[in-house]
């Protein structure tokens, strides 16, 4: 309810355990932790704002679909094209469909989708909630006894958490199509045989771990954008900052999560 509380306490005490900056980092971490906990407390409790969740899902889709389509397709073409010479050196161009399938499904699609969504959706959430905070719209919800956290934060985080995996699957398909276009043009492989080779190369674990990864990315992008916006400082400058740091922070976290999940999945592969 009172987002200014921890900062206030810190300033009032006016002494710092380590240094001002380090203390602030820990205070922020504690705040983020509480924000995430609050999300899990409220997501299961009625009333549910389904309409708003659907509306936000739609926003996430509309915002990122054009850019994801274009980027996914081009990455498929370019990646295939750039991989060809190395395989050709080994006389193994026949393995091209298998190679790009694995690369796209395991790594490229979730990462590209998440990065684009962080830029398009994360910044938008940060700016939107930031300006609602600054213009007291969040306070207005609160005084009309509507829980702004539920209406604004829960709906957006749910939307990104479910839409990023959906979009990731879409990116896989589009990028594989890009790969096909390039392979068909060069090796004259038929669509049917391309698809067969693709599905031979990837396993259920590949797809499953990518979707799980995308869930984590989606949750991260939603939570970070909402947190930054919800706690943005007063003034128009605060809104810009919220949007900007949403993107930077969520991209940074996406990379870290990518590395962590990679380790886990590798361990599972044995």
């Amino acid at each position: 309810m009172h987002t200014d509380a921890p900062k206030e306490g810190l300033e009032k005490a006016n002494k710092y355990v380590l240094s001002r900056k380090l203390d602030q980092i820990f205070v922020n971490l504690a705040e983020v932790y509480r924000f995430v906990v609050r999300f899990f407390q409220e997501v299961f409790l009625p009333p549910y704002e389904w309409q708003e969740v659907i509306n936000q899902c739609f926003q996430v889709g509309v915002r990122s679909l054009p850019l994801i389509s274009l980027t996914g397709f081009i990455i498929g073409i370019v990646f295939t094209n750039q991989s060809r010479p190395s395989l050709a050196d080994l006389g193994a161009t026949a393995l091209l469909p298998a190679l790009i399938a694995v690369a796209i499904v395991r790594a490229l699609a979730p990462l590209v989708t998440a990065l684009i969504a962080a830029g398009r959706v994360g910044s938008n959430i940060g700016a939107e909630l930031g300006s609602m905070k600054v213009t007291e719209q969040i306070d207005a919800m609160e005084v009309s006894a509507v829980n702004p956290f539920k209406f604004l934060v829960v709906s957006r985080v749910l939307a990104t958490t479910f839409m990023i995996p959906t979009l990731t699957m879409y990116t896989m398909i589009v990028a594989l199509m890009g790969g096909y276009v390039n392979i068909h043009a060069n090796e004259l492989t038929s669509f049917k045989s391309y698809i067969n080779q693709v599905f031979d190369a990837i396993t259920f674990l590949d797809i499953f771990s990518s979707v799980i990864k995308a869930f984590v990315f989606g949750f991260t992008i939603g939570i970070v954008g909402c947190y930054k916006g919800y706690n943005s400082s007063k003034g128009t400058e605060g809104v810009g900052k919220a949007a900007n740091s949403s993107v930077v922070t969520s991209m940074f976290l996406v990379f870290i999560e990518e590395l962590l999940i990679l380790q886990i999945v590798n361990a599972l592969r044995g």
Binding site: S131, M132, T135, E136, Q137, D139, A140, M141, E142, V143, S144, A145
Partner: peptide, 15 residues
């Protein structure tokens, strides 16, 4: 809060 109406300095309409 249901019994209290709050008219904000900057209106705070949901834009």
């Amino acid at each position: 809060r249901l019994k209290i109406g709050f008219s904000f300095q900057n209106s705070a309409l949901y834009d």
